[in-house]
């Protein structure tokens, strides 16, 4: 069941498009903001709202990489793996995360605090290597800065 807030936000999103299903991506992202990921149940809720079938919506949901169809932790760290960050040493960030939190890319810490995901160029190449945690972008991330950054995300 969609919550009242979700429903209101979805209704608002639908206004921007000439047909309801045009808001599919907005709707997925909106609900994901509230629920962290899109479970099968969430998918059905949204599909119903948009008058689509689960197949219709999941075909879209599984295409885009920012729609999570599997559970994620309380925080998601996106480590840019594209070329400028690669040159500037994004692997070290990843190794560091692995060392300190015992998770590889694509995994979630056991306490559910953090999920690390790969991401294509974050568009902060001039400050490579870059990473994004939830909605915050960090540039020139040296391995030794990671703990300080991570302290903000409990």
């Amino acid at each position: 069941m969609l919550s009242d807030i979700e429903r209101r936000e979805l209704e608002e999103a639908v206004q921007h498009y000439s047909e309801k299903r045009g808001a599919a991506i907005d709707a997925l992202l909106t609900v994901q903001r509230h629920r962290r990921w899109i479970s099968d149940e969430s998918l059905l809720d949204i599909a119903q709202f948009l008058e689509m079938t689960a197949e219709d919506l999941d075909s879209i949901a599984t295409f885009y990489n920012l729609v999570f169809r599997k559970p994620v932790g309380r925080h998601v760290a996106f480590v840019c793996d594209s070329i400028s960050c690669w040159i500037m040493g994004c692997e070290q960030i990843r190794e560091q995360l692995k060392k300190h939190y015992d998770i590889d890319v694509g995994q979630t810490t056991r306490d559910g605090r953090l999920t690390v995901l790969p991401i294509a160029c974050l568009g902060h190449c001039e400050r490579a290597p870059a990473m994004m945690i939830d909605q915050d972008v960090y540039g020139e991330v040296a391995p030794d800065k990671i703990d300080i950054i991570m302290n903000k995300y409990k």
Partner: peptide, 22 residues
């Protein structure tokens, strides 16, 4: 419209499909 990620969305006709919710 905020996209849900995918480089191909930058290609203008793919972008149009993405905007149509496809």
């Amino acid at each position: 419209h905020s996209s849900a990620g995918r480089y191909i969305c930058g290609e203008e006709t793919a972008l149009i499909n993405a905007l149509e919710g496809k």
